[in-house]
Design a protein around this nucleic acid. Sequence first.
DNA 1: CAGTGAGCGAGCTTCCGCTTGACTT
Length: 773
Amino acid sequence: MIENLVIVESPAKAKTIERFLGKEFVVKSSFGHVRDLAKKNLGIDVNNEFKPEYIVSVDKKKIVKELKDLAKKATTVWIASDEDREGEAIAWHLQEVLNLDEKKIKRIVFHEITKDAILKAIENPRSIDTNLVNAQQARRVLDRLVGFELSPLLWKKVKPSLSAGRVQSVAVKLIVEREREIKAFDSKSFYKVSGQFFTPGENQLLKAELSKKFNAVEEAEQFLEKCRDSEFLVNSIEKKPGKKSPAAPFTTSTLQQEASRKLGFSVAQTMAVAQRLYESGLITYMRTDSVNLSGLAISTASEEIKSSFGDNYLKIRKYKTKAKGAQEAHEAIRPTYISNRTIDGKSQEKRLYELIWKRTIASQMSDALLERTNINISISKSSEHFIASGEVLIFDGFLKVYIESTDDDIEEEAKGLLPPMKENAPLQYKSIEATERFTSPSARYTEASLVKKMEELGIGRPSTYAPTISTIQNREYVIKETREGLQREITILTISGDNTDSAIGKKLKKENFGSEKSKLFPTDIGSIVNDFLQQHFVDIMNYNFTASVEKEFDEIAAGKTDWAKMIGTFYGPFHKKVDDTMETSEKSKGEKILGDDPATGKPISVKIGRFGPMVQMGEADDEEKPRFASLLKGQSIETLTLEQALDLFKLPRSLGQYEDLEVTVAIGRFGPYAKHNNKFYSLQKEDDPHTVTLERAIELIGIKRVEEKNRIILEYKDEPGLLVLNGKYGPYIAFNKKNYKIPKSKTPAELTLEECKEIIEKTPDKPSRKRKK
DNA sequence: CAGTGAGCGAGCTTCCGCTTGACTT
């Protein structure tokens, strides 16, 4: 007999709590949800008030049995799952599965894992909030209906094994739309003017920028012309105080963003490292949307700040969450023991821990105080002004430990101290430059900036950000890639104060632009699926869909709406639309007509084929069979031009004859190759299949033949198909398209044919490897 | 290792949100 059984969601949490409570308490974990909708079919009876069919998940059978046994023996069972919608549902499912007298079960909640908080919770038990449970059931059922009705539609109309859902489809949409926005962006050039000035007799330089930007090179030229015989004057000096405040403590989303920017971690990597830190008891729970710190955390942080930096660095702050739909069942992510500035562990763990430590400490520190100075410089022959701005740090405050990064990669020049100046003092210029710049489109998403956007829209939860990002990449809707940029030429106009008589200097400079590092790009399939869903299911694809159903879930939680009724209102029209689309819509291949082949006049189109994106020349019902060619890596249906398509049809290409047989070049699955006598010879990086010569192909054939010859250690006259070869992993025997390992006891170069045959016979048939989930 | 693009059909795929190990190479 045990006195009390306490059930929480996470085993790490169970371990800590067990330490706080006495011997009369056994603390166990449910490992999250214990039941879910049946996986076969829908798992929902749509004709009977959407009655869900719940089953104990396979991986939870063991734990459920254990909890059942313990619960039977206990006098009281305390269900202490999180205080949010999912937590309440977990509590209800547990109650159902444990199948106990209701009087034996008590529902408790606590927000801090301290002895006091837990004992207080135990003094104030309540019963399970059925309305909140119903809100969760509505959420679960809606997601299942959307996912399990839209996905099969895609299998039929686009490609098997695809998926769609309330969250993932909108995440893909963000990326598809951003890509189109970037492709459609019309970059405009403009001129930015900056100058270097000095007070006669002094040698300190004052850098200043013109607030006006010029759109045409002529305007910039005219302005510099005016500057050349202008007088410059310090028009005004303005000083004003400024301050910077620290960012809130980490949530899952902000941790993922900062770990990506500062440490270069992927979203999944951040979560895996954080999980290890959590399990070692070093940080609090890492899946949270709360920016709140416990009283204990704030007081230990205060101590740490006072002793390390001094009283004037301390400023206790309460942060409020801005995220839509935040449920705040946990604390913010922080070190468990704030006095530990560093930890032992792997390099990744140390770095992430230090980031969390700094962010937590900084959040309770004073503002940084600055003095900002603007010097306004007038130009006698123009009404424009140059402005020099500087910034001096008066008090560093939280900046002593932590500076938050931003996504904007616009290099902001470090503003520093300005040289001393007097109002109305005359200035001379050392040089004035007009530099050509270009307007740029919104940046492509990184994994972390996509999470940030999803959080803003209220789509997804802390526990699903990382898995969702993985799903859309696994389905190949989206690909994370580094792409090289392009080069462009910019014009720089200069006048020099040392030589006021000479003409305006003009030089051209090359600059790189548009390169992307680890950014998310939509694939052809991603775009096609997005357009298909957008065309037929606008409501679900709307960025506000989640926010609006969340409002209805809140109504259910408040007991104002019946959950099955709410689902019914949604499902009626939705299901009809699914049926209609299944019946009437054509298969979606993303087909685009590019134009006609100038040589034959046949139409050329691009679309998704059985093996991926391809171009087609001619129609299927023509007398002559149409020609096909796959798109190359990096090309996409959306952006392929007729010219590029024609290039694709130039292969395979015949180079001529060698040893009485034809040599051809083409591009295969593994890149460009030359083919001769049914043997393949890979082209090298420097070879272009469109221009490579017969001579070069023959050279490659020669090289490979020598290599092949060197591979052969032994061959036998009596058995031409049996060879002893030198491979990547050492010598081996090749026979009948199978490879055999040579025992260590034998010297490969001395093997006789008989010995080889013996080895082959003794080698057992390898069972063909089967793919398991 | 190496261009494939027909059609039929069985049997499979799929959602979101809680939580961590456990299959093998």
